[in-house]
Design a protein around this nucleic acid. Sequence first.
DNA 1: GTGGATGCCTAAACCCCTTAGGCAAATGCC
DNA 2: GGCATTTGCCTAAGGGGTTTAGGCATCCAC
Lengths: 191, 191
Amino acid sequence: MPRAGLSVERLTRAGAELADEVGFDQVTVSALARRFDVKVASLYSHLKSSQDLKTRIALLALEELADRAADALAGRAGKDALAAFADVYRDYAREHPGRYAAARFRLDPETAAASAGVRQALMIRAILRGYDLAEPDQTHAVRLLGSVFHGYVSLELAGGFSHSAPDPGTSWVRIVDALDALLRDWPAPAP
Amino acid sequence: MPRAGLSVERLTRAGAELADEVGFDQVTVSALARRFDVKVASLYSHLKSSQDLKTRIALLALEELADRAADALAGRAGKDALAAFADVYRDYAREHPGRYAAARFRLDPETAAASAGVRQALMIRAILRGYDLAEPDQTHAVRLLGSVFHGYVSLELAGGFSHSAPDPGTSWVRIVDALDALLRDWPAPAP
DNA sequence: GTGGATGCCTAAACCCCTTAGGCAAATGCC
DNA sequence: GGCATTTGCCTAAGGGGTTTAGGCATCCAC
C-alpha cells in the first residue's frame, strides 16, 4: 500500500479548505482523515491533537490576512489605507468564511503573541499615523477599528444583514467614511 | 426512585448557568444530565436535541439582554441612552460570558425573527431617533453600533485587550463618546 | 541489499448524541 | 382510597469524534 504523503503543512491547508467548505467548527480530525482516505489515527503522527490542528489553521488564516493587508497597504496612507485595510478584512471573510472563523479561534497568549495577529495590530497603528492621534487616544482608536471590522464582518457572516436594504456593501463604505471622519476629528473626553 | 423534576425551563436555566461556568461550547446534554444526576437519555423527553438546548439558552440570553436594555433605556435619550445601552451590553457579557456567547448562537431565520433580538434592534433604532439621521443613514448607523458593541465585547472577552494599558473600561467610555460625536455629525457620502 | 527511521495501520478506551422500548411514579377519575 | 392513564426516567444500543499503544510495511541512506 503506497503512502498518502501526509505532512503538517498539507493537513493544515486541507483543514483550511475544509473549514471554508463546511465551517470551522465542523473541522475535525476524522473529516480530514476521510479527505485523505486514511485512517484517523494516522493523522496523530503529524498532529498533536484536534486543538493543534485548529490552532494551525488559525495561524495560517492570520498569516494570509496579514499578507493581504500588507499588500493592500503598500503605497497608501490616510483614508485610502483605512479603506484598503477594511476591504481586505471583509473580502477575506467573505471569500474564506471558515478561515476567517479560524482566525478568531482563541489562541493561548504566547501563541497569539507569536502569530501574525500582532502584524495586523501594527498595521492598524500604522494606518492611524495618518491621523493626528496621541496616546492613549491612538489605542482607543485601534480598539474601535478592530471592533468595527470584526463586529461588522462577523454580523454579516452570521446573516445579520441579509435580506434587508441597503445592501451590506453600501453600509460598509459609509461606515468606513464615517470612521475616517471620526479619526480626523477625534473628540476630547466628555466633560 | 423519586423523580428529578426536570422541565424545559429548569434545563434551560441550568444550561445557561453551565455556559457561564464552562463556556457555551462546553454546554452539552451529557454535562447537563450529570448536573441533575440523571441519565442522559432522560433529557430527551424534554429536549429535542443538543441544538434545541443551545437554541433555548440563546433565546433566554437574548431575552435577558433585551430586558436589561429596556430597563436601562427607560427615561433616557440621546447620549445618555447610547451609553446606557452600551454598558448593558458590555456588563452583561462580562457577568455572563457563556450566555453572551449563546446570544451569538446562529439561529435559523424564523426563530431569530421571533426572538428578543428584534427588540434589541428596535431599541437601537429608538436611540438613534435622538440623533438626526434619515434613512438610509439610520440603517448604516444601526449596523455600525451593532458592530462596535458586539465587536468590542467579543474582543475583550477573547482576551484581546488584556494586560495592556489603557484599561478596557476607559477605552469603552471614550469609544462611546466618539460614537456619540459621530452620530451627531454623521458625514455625507464621500465624493 | 540491508538497517533504521518513518508512516500508516489495527485495536481499544473514552466521551458525546440520539432513538427505542420498558417499568415505575405521579395524576386524575370515580 | 383504588384504579387507569399519562408521564418521567431508565436500560440498551448504534453512530461519531478523540486519543493512545503497538505493529508492520515502506522508504531512504549507506
